[in-house]
Design a protein around this nucleic acid. Structure first.
Lengths: 201, 201
DNA sequence: TCTTTTTTGTAATGATCGATAAATAAATCT
DNA sequence: AGATTTATTTATCGATCATTACAAAAAAGA
């Protein structure tokens, strides 16, 4: 029975996507309600009725980002069978996503919540959780490779995962500074150049 | 003849250092005038008389940062004779500086100005200049190693410099997320594991 | 001592921030 | 039709933002 009362005159998903663009480019504090409502094509009361408040909207934007853009980037890590190619595909997908011409450069998750004065506590917590999860995903993929006999059990999976997650985060800053796909690929190649030495092959 | 009128009752350098702490931790937009004046122990008119405006204060803070903390980090790159040890020293100095317990984690330069809505144009320009300069410094050090016969002329100095600068920037995000010296050193070790492959040795 | 110069503390400026009150409009339910 | 429910528009809320008048205070120059 959600069909009572005046129907909403805008597409909630489209509005959320517009909000994502604004937050992605301008950050949480940098995106004003005026910026958001202008991009979403609605007035403040509609925003508050549909999303609660600015903070709740941002948290929902983070979920949308990791469900769409994030998925594009991370999927190759799981789908590619061999660990070295999976990591390489993951980094190249990162380079491609971070240099798309029609969207803000770099990652919304990597670049957000880096200054305590610019974010609320729940948002800071969500960022910590998401970024910590990046390391976990990489570590689990490395451990899978060990379980499959592809890598020796002697590797430091946590250290290697931290390294690749950190390289990816650095790529967000490079992309924000105008680094194109070519520059980002140089970084990916550099990180892959460490693979054999790190995994003892 | 700067000795006319009522003398300033606070130490300008100490106030600037306090402002650096606030901007470093909270970012440009996240640091309010109230935060700044409270930390500096002065009233707004004194801040404006001594530093001009918030933007000018921030630009001066950036200079102070690169002159002090930045110098600590980058000096080993020049002073250590061999390129591999110089790079390693540079990354370890970074890991140490980014995990100091008595100051904000990560680099003020690396983490600032990443969102267009949170910074003015002159500040954004200063960040671009500083971060681009990081790549230049690394590239020049690599080219010096080529000139000294330590590395082959066939290396892609720009690509390698971009890789190491990006790793360093990623370390700032890791440090902000609570990564300690041990975690940061893992990243430094990972980056150094790529050195031989990247330089063809 | 008296004027001049600069800094100080207090208080207030207009602008913008995120968030809402109130009235109207558009739908369903009885 | 009339009552109920929800969304919309318009206008505005108090709080906070960076910035600044203003007058008292503290120094040097005359």
């Amino acid at each position: 029975m959600p069909e009572r009362g005046r129907p909403r005159s805008f597409d909630r998903n489209a509005a959320l996507e517009s909000a994502m663009q604004v937050f992605w480019e301008k950050g949480y504090e940098g995106a004003s309600l005026a910026d958001l409502t202008a991009a979403m094509g609605i007035n403040p009361p509609s925003l508050y009725a549909a999303f609660g408040c600015k903070e709740a909207l941002y948290l929902e934007v983070m979920e949308l980002y990791s469900r769409t853009i994030g998925m594009e980037i991370w999927s190759s890590l799981e789908t590619i069978a061999t660990i070295k190619e999976a990591l390489n595909g993951f980094l190249l997908a990162t380079a491609k996503a971070y240099s798309q011409p029609n969207q803000p450069h770099g990652c919304l998750i990597a670049l957000g919540g880096l200054h305590s004065g610019e974010v609320t506590k729940p948002i800071c917590g969500a960022f910590c959780k998401h970024r910590a999860d990046s390391i976990v995903k990489l570590r689990q993929r490395l451990q899978r490779a060990v379980a499959e006999g592809e890598l020796p059990a002697s590797i430091d999976a946590e250290a290697i995962a931290t390294f690749y997650a950190t390289v990816q985060n650095g790529m967000s800053i490079l992309a924000r500074d105008g680094g194109d796909y070519r520059a980002l690929k140089h970084v990916a190649d550099g990180a892959m150049a460490a693979f054999d030495a790190l995994t003892g092959r």
